[in-house]
Amino acid sequence: MLKFVKRYSCTFVLAMTSVLLLSVSSKAYPCSSCGSGAADPVILNPMENQKFYLDIAQQSNFKDVDSEGDVRRDLGPEKKMQMQMAFAQRITERLFGSLVSGVGRNARGSRQATGILDTSLNLRYNLMNQTMLNPYLPQVQVMLSHRLKTTRSVQDARKENYLDSFGTGYSESFYGVDAWFGMLPVMFGGSILRSAPWAADTKSGRLLPGPVQKEIVSIGFMVTPEVKIMGGAVRERRATIRLNGSELRNSDRTSHDLYGTLETSLLGVDNYRVTLSKRAAFATNKNTTELVSLTLAWMRTL
């Protein structure tokens, strides 16, 4: 029991913090987010106070990209299925938070394993709202999030082909800014996210991943008043890993990803989103995994 409490104490603290934050809700006012979509999975639009989110994702076509940028056969799972759940809550007119977690299933051939995914708590604060009074002024949001290590990583996998690995193996805090020009006929925006990873004890020793920087650029337009189409690119660069205090040479990572998404935007009812993305899709990539991901999401405004 004590072991269980110790293991899940951080999750408990996160959950309790969320409950406290969620208990001080207020009426929504614009414009909280139209978002560039590639960071938090759930965004509260101006007229929304609470939202439940559920998605099912399938990842396939895994290929390793080595430190020279060469694509090789992947030794991990051939297919990953994930179900993510999230709850978003408006805290003030300008601030909302979301709690995200889920379960996953990894498969290779006839073998498979199921486990819990890492949990994350995300906050977004609207520094600047957008209105049609001045369409050239963007919406600017500050993002803060913490992903909590709740599950086994590749470093600690016990099953062959890392089938029981469902997380990164370390906790990581993110901060960033998101600008979105959503009042123009063609909407566009960008965001920059940086991280502060937390050291973690693994089988090989004390691991401290380098901080990551993500740059996301997105473009989109409304196909009809109810349907939005968006696409974009993500560049993710992670600095060198430190193991037991020493730098692991050539362990920095780079990935250039692409994504496209189709989303309904009805008020106060169910909405749906389909996202197709490809990791390590273009340019030079390093120490990453090439994969294709298809996500179907359902969102209910409460």
């Binding site: 414009c31 101006p46 957008q130 049609m132 959503g182 123009l184 409304m222």
Partner: peptide
């Protein structure tokens, strides 16, 4: 309409 609804114009 809403001030943030571009297509309301």
């Amino acid at each position: 309409f809403a001030s943030w609804c571009k297509s309301c114009e």
